[in-house]
Protein backbone atom coordinates (compact mmCIF):
# COMPACT_ATOMS: atom_id res chain seq x y z
CA UNK A 1 0.00 0.00 0.00
CA UNK A 2 2.91 2.32 0.74
CA UNK A 3 4.82 1.19 -2.33
CA UNK A 4 2.27 2.44 -4.84
CA UNK A 5 2.16 5.86 -3.19
CA UNK A 6 5.92 6.40 -3.36
CA UNK A 7 5.66 5.41 -7.01
CA UNK A 8 3.71 8.62 -7.51
CA UNK A 9 6.88 10.57 -6.71
CA UNK A 10 8.12 9.54 -10.16
CA UNK A 11 5.35 11.46 -11.93
CA UNK A 12 6.76 14.99 -11.64
CA UNK A 13 10.34 14.14 -12.61
CA UNK A 14 9.12 11.96 -15.46
CA UNK A 15 6.92 14.76 -16.79
CA UNK A 16 9.82 17.18 -16.45
CA UNK A 17 12.17 14.88 -18.37
CA UNK A 18 9.51 14.22 -21.01
CA UNK A 19 8.91 17.93 -21.65
CA UNK A 20 12.47 19.21 -21.31
CA UNK A 21 14.51 16.24 -22.45
CA UNK A 22 12.77 13.54 -24.48
CA UNK A 23 10.49 15.78 -26.56
CA UNK A 24 13.22 18.36 -27.39
CA UNK A 25 15.46 15.52 -28.43
CA UNK A 26 12.83 14.32 -30.87
CA UNK A 27 12.74 17.84 -32.24
CA UNK A 28 16.48 17.64 -32.89
CA UNK A 29 16.05 14.31 -34.66
CA UNK A 30 13.19 15.66 -36.74
CA UNK A 31 15.06 18.82 -37.64
CA UNK A 32 18.10 16.86 -38.78
CA UNK A 33 15.83 15.19 -41.34
CA UNK A 34 14.32 18.46 -42.51
CA UNK A 35 15.33 20.71 -45.38
CA UNK A 36 17.54 23.67 -44.80
CA UNK A 37 15.91 27.03 -45.08
CA UNK A 38 18.28 29.78 -44.22
CA UNK A 39 17.93 32.04 -41.26
CA UNK A 40 14.42 31.60 -39.99
CA UNK A 41 12.47 28.64 -38.72
CA UNK A 42 10.12 26.88 -39.33
CA UNK A 43 11.53 24.23 -41.54
CA UNK A 44 9.73 22.15 -44.08
CA UNK A 45 8.06 19.80 -43.68
CA UNK A 46 5.58 20.48 -40.91
CA UNK A 47 2.77 18.32 -39.76
CA UNK A 48 -0.54 19.57 -41.08
CA UNK A 49 -2.77 18.50 -38.19
CA UNK A 50 -5.94 19.63 -39.95
CA UNK A 51 -5.47 16.75 -42.38
CA UNK A 52 -5.20 14.15 -39.64
CA UNK A 53 -3.36 10.94 -40.45
CA UNK A 54 -2.92 12.01 -44.03
CA UNK A 55 -1.04 15.06 -42.78
CA UNK A 56 1.26 12.89 -40.67
CA UNK A 57 1.97 10.68 -43.68
CA UNK A 58 2.84 13.63 -45.90
CA UNK A 59 5.06 14.91 -43.12
CA UNK A 60 6.91 11.63 -42.85
CA UNK A 61 7.37 11.49 -46.64
CA UNK A 62 8.84 14.97 -46.49
CA UNK A 63 11.65 13.85 -44.19
CA UNK A 64 14.87 12.79 -45.83
CA UNK A 65 18.52 12.22 -45.18
CA UNK A 66 19.48 15.19 -47.36
CA UNK A 67 21.28 16.99 -44.52
CA UNK A 68 23.30 13.92 -43.59
CA UNK A 69 24.29 13.43 -47.22
CA UNK A 70 25.44 17.02 -47.29
CA UNK A 71 27.56 16.44 -44.18
CA UNK A 72 29.09 13.38 -45.77
CA UNK A 73 30.05 15.29 -48.91
CA UNK A 74 31.69 18.10 -47.00
CA UNK A 75 35.27 17.36 -45.98
CA UNK A 76 34.97 19.83 -43.07
CA UNK A 77 32.49 17.70 -41.15
CA UNK A 78 34.42 14.49 -41.61
CA UNK A 79 37.61 16.23 -40.45
CA UNK A 80 35.85 17.67 -37.43
CA UNK A 81 34.43 14.24 -36.59
CA UNK A 82 37.79 12.53 -36.83
CA UNK A 83 39.71 15.19 -34.95
CA UNK A 84 37.08 15.20 -32.16
CA UNK A 85 37.63 11.50 -31.63
CA UNK A 86 41.40 11.80 -32.04
CA UNK A 87 41.79 14.69 -29.60
CA UNK A 88 39.47 13.11 -27.05
CA UNK A 89 41.32 9.80 -27.44
CA UNK A 90 44.80 11.28 -27.10
CA UNK A 91 43.70 13.40 -24.13
CA UNK A 92 42.26 10.28 -22.48
CA UNK A 93 45.60 8.51 -22.89
CA UNK A 94 47.47 11.48 -21.44
CA UNK A 95 45.02 11.68 -18.56
CA UNK A 96 45.66 8.03 -17.72
CA UNK A 97 49.40 8.58 -17.77
CA UNK A 98 49.23 11.70 -15.61
CA UNK A 99 46.30 10.76 -13.43
CA UNK A 100 47.49 7.30 -12.42
CA UNK A 101 50.65 8.36 -10.53
CA UNK A 102 48.69 11.07 -8.74
CA UNK A 103 45.88 8.72 -7.71
CA UNK A 104 48.38 6.05 -6.68
CA UNK A 105 50.45 8.58 -4.74
CA UNK A 106 47.38 9.79 -2.84
CA UNK A 107 46.35 6.23 -1.98
CA UNK A 108 49.75 5.67 -0.35
CA UNK A 109 49.39 8.65 2.01
CA UNK A 110 48.18 8.45 5.62
CA UNK A 111 44.35 8.63 5.96
CA UNK A 112 44.15 12.26 7.11
CA UNK A 113 46.33 13.44 4.23
CA UNK A 114 44.37 11.29 1.79
CA UNK A 115 41.13 13.07 2.62
CA UNK A 116 42.66 16.51 2.30
CA UNK A 117 44.35 15.61 -0.99
CA UNK A 118 41.14 14.25 -2.49
CA UNK A 119 39.48 17.47 -1.45
CA UNK A 120 42.30 19.42 -3.12
CA UNK A 121 41.77 17.50 -6.35
CA UNK A 122 38.02 18.11 -6.33
CA UNK A 123 38.13 21.78 -5.35
CA UNK A 124 39.08 23.19 -8.79
CA UNK A 125 36.02 21.44 -10.23
CA UNK A 126 33.85 23.69 -8.11
CA UNK A 127 35.37 26.84 -9.58
CA UNK A 128 34.24 28.08 -12.94
CA UNK A 129 35.30 25.93 -15.85
CA UNK A 130 35.29 28.93 -18.18
CA UNK A 131 37.55 30.91 -15.86
CA UNK A 132 40.02 28.06 -15.52
CA UNK A 133 40.29 27.73 -19.30
CA UNK A 134 40.54 31.48 -19.62
CA UNK A 135 43.49 31.42 -17.22
CA UNK A 136 45.37 29.29 -19.71
CA UNK A 137 45.03 31.99 -22.38
CA UNK A 138 47.01 34.35 -20.16
CA UNK A 139 49.62 31.64 -19.65
CA UNK A 140 49.97 30.42 -23.21
CA UNK A 141 49.64 33.57 -25.30
CA UNK A 142 52.84 34.73 -27.01
CA UNK A 143 53.46 37.48 -24.46
CA UNK A 144 52.13 35.32 -21.65
CA UNK A 145 53.35 33.86 -18.39
CA UNK A 146 54.80 30.70 -19.92
CA UNK A 147 57.04 32.53 -22.36
CA UNK A 148 58.10 35.00 -19.68
CA UNK A 149 59.16 32.04 -17.54
CA UNK A 150 60.95 30.34 -20.44
CA UNK A 151 62.68 33.61 -21.27
CA UNK A 152 63.86 34.00 -17.70
CA UNK A 153 65.40 30.52 -17.92
CA UNK A 154 67.07 31.44 -21.21
CA UNK A 155 64.91 29.04 -23.20
CA UNK A 156 63.34 29.83 -26.57
CA UNK A 157 59.74 31.06 -26.56
CA UNK A 158 56.93 28.79 -27.76
CA UNK A 159 53.74 29.76 -29.49
CA UNK A 160 51.20 27.09 -28.75
CA UNK A 161 48.02 29.07 -28.13
CA UNK A 162 45.51 28.35 -30.89
CA UNK A 163 47.01 24.96 -31.66
CA UNK A 164 45.94 21.40 -30.96
CA UNK A 165 48.63 21.23 -28.29
CA UNK A 166 46.86 23.95 -26.37
CA UNK A 167 43.55 22.09 -26.75
CA UNK A 168 45.10 18.89 -25.42
CA UNK A 169 46.62 20.80 -22.53
CA UNK A 170 43.25 22.36 -21.74
CA UNK A 171 41.43 19.01 -21.96
CA UNK A 172 43.93 17.30 -19.67
CA UNK A 173 43.81 20.20 -17.24
CA UNK A 174 40.02 20.42 -17.07
CA UNK A 175 39.34 16.68 -16.84
CA UNK A 176 42.17 15.60 -14.55
CA UNK A 177 39.95 15.41 -11.42
CA UNK A 178 37.53 13.13 -13.30
CA UNK A 179 40.39 10.74 -14.01
CA UNK A 180 42.05 10.86 -10.61
CA UNK A 181 38.91 10.24 -8.54
CA UNK A 182 37.73 6.91 -10.01
CA UNK A 183 41.33 5.66 -10.07
CA UNK A 184 41.83 6.69 -6.47
CA UNK A 185 38.54 5.03 -5.51
CA UNK A 186 39.69 1.59 -6.67
CA UNK A 187 43.27 2.01 -5.43
CA UNK A 188 42.07 3.11 -2.01
CA UNK A 189 39.74 0.13 -1.71
CA UNK A 190 42.53 -2.28 -2.48
CA UNK A 191 43.55 -4.56 0.34
CA UNK A 192 47.11 -3.86 1.40
CA UNK A 193 47.53 -7.48 2.48
CA UNK A 194 47.41 -8.49 -1.21
CA UNK A 195 50.68 -6.65 -1.79
CA UNK A 196 52.14 -8.13 1.36
CA UNK A 197 51.07 -11.58 0.22
CA UNK A 198 52.72 -11.01 -3.18
CA UNK A 199 55.93 -9.85 -1.53
CA UNK A 200 55.77 -12.72 0.91
CA UNK A 201 55.65 -15.02 -2.11
CA UNK A 202 58.82 -13.46 -3.46
CA UNK A 203 57.68 -10.53 -5.61
CA UNK A 204 59.75 -7.36 -5.56
CA UNK A 205 57.77 -4.19 -4.74
CA UNK A 206 57.81 -3.24 -8.41
CA UNK A 207 56.62 -6.59 -9.70
CA UNK A 208 54.01 -6.71 -6.92
CA UNK A 209 52.71 -3.42 -8.29
CA UNK A 210 52.58 -4.63 -11.89
CA UNK A 211 51.18 -8.04 -11.11
CA UNK A 212 48.68 -7.17 -8.37
CA UNK A 213 47.92 -3.48 -7.89
CA UNK A 214 47.83 -2.48 -11.52
CA UNK A 215 45.57 -5.27 -12.87
CA UNK A 216 43.16 -4.71 -9.98
CA UNK A 217 42.94 -0.98 -10.71
CA UNK A 218 41.95 -1.41 -14.34
CA UNK A 219 38.24 -1.06 -13.58
CA UNK A 220 38.94 2.41 -12.17
CA UNK A 221 41.02 3.26 -15.22
CA UNK A 222 38.16 2.20 -17.49
CA UNK A 223 35.66 4.26 -15.51
CA UNK A 224 37.93 7.32 -15.56
CA UNK A 225 38.68 6.94 -19.27
CA UNK A 226 34.99 6.74 -20.23
CA UNK A 227 34.02 9.48 -17.79
CA UNK A 228 36.52 11.80 -19.52
CA UNK A 229 36.20 10.65 -23.12
CA UNK A 230 32.44 11.09 -23.41
CA UNK A 231 32.19 14.79 -22.53
CA UNK A 232 35.54 15.63 -24.15
CA UNK A 233 34.33 14.41 -27.53
CA UNK A 234 31.51 16.96 -27.38
CA UNK A 235 33.59 19.71 -25.78
CA UNK A 236 33.03 23.26 -26.96
CA UNK A 237 34.68 25.81 -24.65
CA UNK A 238 38.22 24.36 -24.71
CA UNK A 239 38.66 24.07 -28.49
CA UNK A 240 36.93 27.39 -28.95
CA UNK A 241 39.12 29.37 -26.55
CA UNK A 242 42.43 27.52 -26.85
CA UNK A 243 42.25 25.91 -30.26
CA UNK A 244 41.96 28.86 -32.58
CA UNK A 245 40.22 28.64 -35.91
CA UNK A 246 41.96 25.49 -37.20
CA UNK A 247 40.92 23.17 -34.42
CA UNK A 248 37.68 21.54 -35.39
CA UNK A 249 35.68 19.58 -32.90
CA UNK A 250 32.08 18.51 -33.23
CA UNK A 251 30.82 20.52 -30.28
CA UNK A 252 32.26 23.59 -31.86
CA UNK A 253 30.82 22.72 -35.29
CA UNK A 254 27.34 22.47 -33.81
CA UNK A 255 27.84 25.85 -32.18
CA UNK A 256 29.12 27.45 -35.39
CA UNK A 257 26.44 25.95 -37.61
CA UNK A 258 23.86 27.20 -35.21
CA UNK A 259 25.06 30.65 -34.20
CA UNK A 260 27.19 31.71 -37.15
CA UNK A 261 25.76 29.88 -40.15
CA UNK A 262 22.21 29.67 -38.84
CA UNK A 263 21.97 26.24 -40.40
CA UNK A 264 19.79 24.56 -37.82
CA UNK A 265 19.26 21.26 -39.65
CA UNK A 266 23.04 20.88 -40.08
CA UNK A 267 23.61 21.59 -36.39
CA UNK A 268 20.96 19.01 -35.52
CA UNK A 269 22.41 16.40 -37.85
CA UNK A 270 25.90 16.90 -36.38
CA UNK A 271 24.39 16.54 -32.90
CA UNK A 272 22.77 13.24 -33.89
CA UNK A 273 26.02 11.96 -35.39
CA UNK A 274 27.93 12.92 -32.25
CA UNK A 275 25.41 11.20 -30.05
CA UNK A 276 25.35 8.08 -32.22
CA UNK A 277 29.14 7.91 -31.90
CA UNK A 278 29.00 8.31 -28.15
CA UNK A 279 26.30 5.67 -27.65
CA UNK A 280 28.85 2.86 -27.44
CA UNK A 281 31.12 4.46 -24.80
CA UNK A 282 28.02 5.65 -22.92
CA UNK A 283 26.59 2.13 -22.79
CA UNK A 284 29.98 0.74 -21.75
CA UNK A 285 30.17 3.29 -18.98
CA UNK A 286 26.66 2.52 -17.80
CA UNK A 287 27.44 -1.21 -17.65
CA UNK A 288 30.67 -0.53 -15.83
CA UNK A 289 28.94 1.68 -13.27
CA UNK A 290 26.27 -0.91 -12.68
CA UNK A 291 28.93 -3.51 -11.98
CA UNK A 292 30.57 -1.19 -9.48
CA UNK A 293 27.26 -0.45 -7.77
CA UNK A 294 26.15 -4.08 -7.68
Amino acid sequence: MRRSRTGLAAVVPLLWLAVFFAFPFMLVAKLSLSDTALAIPPYAPRIDWSRGLEGVRTFLQGLDLETYARLGRDRLYLDAYLSSLRLAGVATGLLLLIGYPIAYGISRCPPKARQALVMAVILPFWTSFLIRIYAWIAILKPAGVLNAALGALGLPAVDILNTETAVLLGLVYAYLPFMVLPLYAVLDRQDESLIEAAQDLGATPLSAFWRVTFPLSLSGAAAGALLCFIPMAGEFVIPDLLGGSETLMLGRVIWTEFFANRDWPAASAVAIVLLATLVIPILLFERQQRKVLA
Binding site: P13, L14, L17, A18, V19, F20, F21, A22, F23, P24, F25, L27, V28, L31, I230, P231, A233, G234, F236, L250, G251, I254, W255, F258, W264, A267, S268, A271, L274, L275, L278, I282, F285, E286
Partner: peptide, 21 residues
Protein backbone atom coordinates in the same frame (compact mmCIF):
# COMPACT_ATOMS: atom_id res chain seq x y z
CA UNK B 1 17.15 5.96 -18.07
CA UNK B 2 16.13 9.60 -18.40
CA UNK B 3 18.30 10.70 -15.49
CA UNK B 4 21.29 8.80 -16.78
CA UNK B 5 20.81 10.09 -20.33
CA UNK B 6 20.72 13.72 -19.14
CA UNK B 7 23.87 13.10 -17.16
CA UNK B 8 25.93 11.98 -20.15
CA UNK B 9 24.30 14.07 -22.88
CA UNK B 10 26.84 16.51 -24.34
CA UNK B 11 25.89 20.03 -23.27
CA UNK B 12 25.85 21.29 -26.82
CA UNK B 13 23.15 18.79 -27.75
CA UNK B 14 21.11 19.48 -24.64
CA UNK B 15 21.29 23.22 -25.33
CA UNK B 16 20.31 22.82 -28.95
CA UNK B 17 17.37 20.56 -28.15
CA UNK B 18 16.05 22.89 -25.47
CA UNK B 19 16.29 25.82 -27.83
CA UNK B 20 14.28 23.93 -30.42
CA UNK B 21 11.67 23.22 -27.75
Amino acid sequence: GGVYATLVMPEVILGLSLLLL
